[in-house]
């Protein structure tokens, strides 16, 4: 609970998939309505995000997505790269919420 008041910057990059088109979402918890920010913190705690391994992978399957989630919170930073087929159940709500946020325009 002590992290509740701290702001977070989250970047999620989705690559692969049938389209092969990468999608990036950048979320700053400062800019979220209070309720959404609280929800985000709750999902982060449930996922135990900072303790997840940096890579969660399976043997590659055609046309599936891969996600790279990076969270910065004050001095802490952690990145997790996870294949769509092996997303842990406790990370799924966070990932779904992140992917439902508006996308960033393409950078290239």
């Amino acid at each position: 609970m002590k992290d509740e008041g701290k702001t977070m910057q989250i970047t999620v990059e989705r690559t692969g998939g049938f389209t092969g088109i990468p999608v990036t979402k950048i979320i700053d918890s400062k800019t979220l309505p209070q309720q959404e920010a609280a929800r985000l913190h709750k999902m982060m705690t449930e996922a135990d995000f900072f303790k997840l391994p940096t890579t969660i992978s399976s043997s590659p399957q055609p046309d599936r997505f891969q996600y790279r989630i990076t969270v910065e919170q004050e001095a802490k930073q952690h990145s997790v790269t996870v294949d769509e087929t092996v997303v842990p159940a406790n990370l799924k709500p966070l990932l779904n919420w992140l992917m439902a946020q508006p996308a960033q325009p393409a950078t290239h």
């Binding site: 049938f18 389209t19 399957q61 599936r64």
Partner: peptide, 11 residues
Amino acid sequence: GVQYDNAFWNG
């Protein structure tokens, strides 16, 4: 899925 931007063959 919900608004799922993909199609795949799962084996």
